[in-house]
Write a protein that binds this DNA or RNA. Structure first.
Length: 426
RNA sequence: GCGAUCGUGGCGAAGGGGUUAACGCACCGGAUUGUGAUUCCGGCAUACGUGGGUUCAAUUCCCAUCGGUCGCCCCA
């Protein structure tokens, strides 16, 4: 029997889960301030949802999905991303009918993609994302981008690069697409094999090909920004204007193309500049997806969102040497000697815990000295010694591990004594 | 899907055809009765990823396989 976790998955153990909890709390707090509410959707969906939502030509759908049949012969897939599910839930639950549009939601949970694992890329990984459905106001594009940036900034990250672009509306994209085909067709033989395929299927993707980056035709390729029609151009300008007003720095990269089919208008990515961050630099990405809700059977509804990888967020924190303020201390540790004392210790431990204190005791039948050592290693604030002598007098010895001072306290007063001490100590 | 590299005890790590397979960390016990550090002494372990092959002999050489890590592709 193979007792290892499947390839590309990992256990998060005590010692690191504290960081995850801290980050999750921070992201929750940010969403609260931006007034985004949490949505929780299933971890698997009908395969068709992703085929239609993410796009049949994408790498995700073509080679990365965890797809299986259940006992009822249904075709299901572990979700490779969050947007399709959120949109499905939006349509199915008719959230578009609720007052107070747009619908602003966030999610946090595991996603699955069948890939070769490496630094910053797991088969199961955790994404946090937000979606705003029902508004075509460029101000909400700016809001989503500012929320995304806040997630990193408020955790202390500095080496960030925000890249934005506009893919335009359908008309702009179509005109640009034709221009791209005209431009690259004469050079088709000189392009890499991938790009030769892209030329037919999705010429936009040629622009972010790394192999053909230095090809002269690449430099002179028609920019989407030159093909934006008036509406699209104005939309993009407004998004930029709002970002400027918020004091958010960005770089416009006309070659920024997102990998999923559903994007249009605003597209953006946040990357890390940090030294030693590894080969993968994209921390998060997002964009506008007007038309997706309709594609999935809902009413015409504009939408925009983004998603970030929590693993990569934590990597970025490490790369910048940022330690999250996680606490690892114990309020008190009870040391008992002798059978009767142990019984009393069991009772006391429970009583103090119910009073709100973080309490632990020995369960390894350790010697007195070893118990003290354990208490020390747990960063215990107060050690309570309870032996035959103390039990007889109905007291305990409370030792302040920081100062080293020791005091005799009546067992019945212990709870109040500790609560007092700990309150004063903080 | 392609490529590189690595698999020795709980962890780190040396070795290199025949060894009791070092060493360090961790852990446990002790150094006068019930007080945390350091030091000293002692203890500890089904450890050479798995399966074949070569050999009198393989942890060491060869092949395969599995797994880890990193990179390409692509992405978060």
């Amino acid at each position: 029997m193979n007792m290892q976790a499947p390839r590309g998955t990992q256990d998060l153990l005590p010692g690191t889960t504290e960081s995850w909890q801290y980050v999750e709390r921070k992201l929750n707090d940010i969403c609260h301030r931006f007034n985004y509410k949490e949505i929780r959707t299933p971890i698997f969906e009908h395969t068709e949802l992703f085929q239609r939502g993410v796009g049949d030509t994408t790498d995700i759908v073509q080679r990365e999905m965890y797809t299986f049949k259940d006992r009822g012969d249904r075709n299901l897939t572990l979700r490779p991303e969050g947007t399709a599910s959120v949109v499905r839930a939006f349509v199915q639950n008719k959230l578009f009918g609720l007052p107070n549009q747009p619908t602003k939601v966030f999610y946090f949970g595991p996603m699955f993609r069948y890939e070769r694992p490496q630094q910053g890329r797991m088969r199961q990984f955790v994404q946090f994302g937000v979606e705003a459905l029902g508004s075509a106001d460029p101000a909400i594009d700016a809001e989503v981008i500012s929320l995304a940036m806040s997630c990193y900034q408020e955790l202390g990250l500095r080496s960030l690069k925000l890249v934005i672009n506009s893919l335009g509306d359908t008309e702009s994209r179509e005109n640009h697409r034709k221009a791209l085909i005209n431009h690259f067709e004469p050079h088709k033989d000189e392009l890499c094999s991938d790009c030769q395929v892209r030329l037919d299927k999705n010429p936009l993707r040629i622009l972010d090909c790394k192999k053909d980056r230095d090809h002269p035709a690449m430099q002179s390729a028609p920019s989407i920004l030159d093909y934006l029609n008036e509406d699209s151009g104005q939309y993009f300008n407004k998004v930029r204007h709002y970002l400027d007003e918020m004091g958010i720095n960005y770089i416009v990269d006309k070659n920024l193309v997102r990998g999923l089919d559903y994007y249009n208008h605003t597209a953006f990515e946040i990357m890390s500049d940090a030294e030693g961050f590894g080969a993968i630099t994209t921390l998060s990405g997002g964009g506008r997806y007007n038309g997706l809700v309709e594609d999935l059977g809902g009413p015409e509804t504009p939408g925009i969102g983004f998603a970030l990888s929590v693993e990569r967020l934590l990597m970025a924190l490490e790369a910048e040497g940022i330690n999250l303020p996680t606490e690892d201390v114990v309020d008190c540790y009870i040391i008992a000697l002798g059978e009767e004392s142990v019984t009393e210790a069991v009772r006391l431990t429970y009583k103090l815990r119910k009073a709100g204190l973080q309490v632990d005791k020995d369960y390894q039948d350790k010697k007195f000295k070893a118990q003290f050592k354990t208490a020390d290693r747990l960063n215990t604030k107060y050690v309570i010694v309870l032996g035959e002598n103390e039990l007889e007098k109905n007291v305990v010895n409370v030792k302040d591990m920081h100062s080293g001072e020791q005091q005799e306290v009546g067992i019945n007063e212990l709870e109040n004594y500790l609560l007092n001490e700990l309150q004063g100590g903080k």
